[in-house]
Design a protein around this nucleic acid. Structure first.
Lengths: 172, 172
DNA sequence: AAAATATGTCAGTGATGTTGACATATCACA
DNA sequence: TGTGATATGTCAACATCACTGACATATTTT
């Protein structure tokens, strides 16, 4: 009942996605439920430490980009510094994250994980990684590349390149 | 520094996700950014009405399952009735949702969307549907089924059947 | 009539986001 | 040198959306 999914053969077709096509309700709902369970398991682990999802995001990105600055982290998370300050304070006081004055610019605070922080970040990533691995098995052969393109396609086009570049970089 | 990522060639490898496999950081982060933008666009529309993501979820599920009860909605959303009460009050007072006593059991409140509520729910679904359609084009041919299996695989196994059945039902 | 059920509501709390304003340390440049 | 820009920290107030606990009301079931 819709145009067959083709890698855009021309720009016009890609730009005008069949104005009256019915939204794919199944995928909309699966994205809701899937994401909920994807973050639900880390949420339960973090609760043991009195942490929440915001702490998770900081742990994750500091883990991936060790030594990143406050400003860089704010850019990635798209939150205000006041919001970040609260969770960062928890993580620093709890001994999960350290700050260090930048070698070039001493105004900067380079963020790094302590061994304790690394351990927690890795546990959370392992759990999410296992869930993704299972989901990829369900998807079947070749699913990873397809899912990667799908998820990338969900990202706001204007930021797509920026984000994929960042992911490629931190993946080393 | 690890075993090269292979598409599972046999079931044993598939069932035991290599205890020390490195988590797929790229997909973990793409899921974060993809979901963020997937809900970001509806969020901006809802903000015009003074609504948030919680209102969206109620609108969506009442739209999909017209006439569902409060209890059924609470089951789907997995929130407390006190949390639901607040957003439901907003939606009813705003003329987006109606309540009607159940024909069999008059204690029940059957929830339905008004035309105004339908219009908003459909606008939100259309925006998310368009984004998904574009992402599926990026994924390429056959992507839809693969993505569907992937997202289903993210869901907690114990609830997978229950949720897929619900989605199939409301899809009619 | 009594128990169970479906829903409503009041009160308090917590996590996470926001805006706005202002302080401090450091860097960069004229 | 000194002045403005920059990176960060912090205080205060507020909004959304979740929670727990307690209790009220209407209706159905037993």
């Amino acid at each position: 009942m819709t145009i067959p999914p083709r890698k855009q053969s021309n720009e016009a077709a890609a730009a005008a996605p069949a104005r009256d096509a019915q939204p794919d309700m199944a995928l909309i709902e699966l994205l809701f439920f899937g994401y909920r369970d994807f973050v639900g398991e880390p949420d339960r682990v973090l609760a043991h430490y009195g942490f929440g999802r915001a702490h998770h995001r900081v742990l994750h990105f500091v883990n991936r980009n060790s030594g990143l600055t406050i400003a860089a982290l704010l850019d990635v998370l798209c939150i205000t510094k006041q919001s970040l300050a609260r969770v960062l304070k928890d993580l620093i006081e709890g001994g999960f994250v350290t700050q260090q004055a930048g070698p070039d610019d001493r105004r900067q605070r380079l963020l790094r994980l302590t061994p304790k922080g690394s351990a927690l970040a890795n546990e959370l990533a392992d759990r999410q990684g296992r869930r993704i691995a299972e989901a990829l098995r369900e998807a079947g052969p070749g699913g990873r590349e397809m899912v990667q393109r799908f998820l990338t396609g969900l990202i706001e086009p204007a930021q797509r390149d920026h984000i994929t570049a960042m992911i490629a970089k931190s993946a080393r």
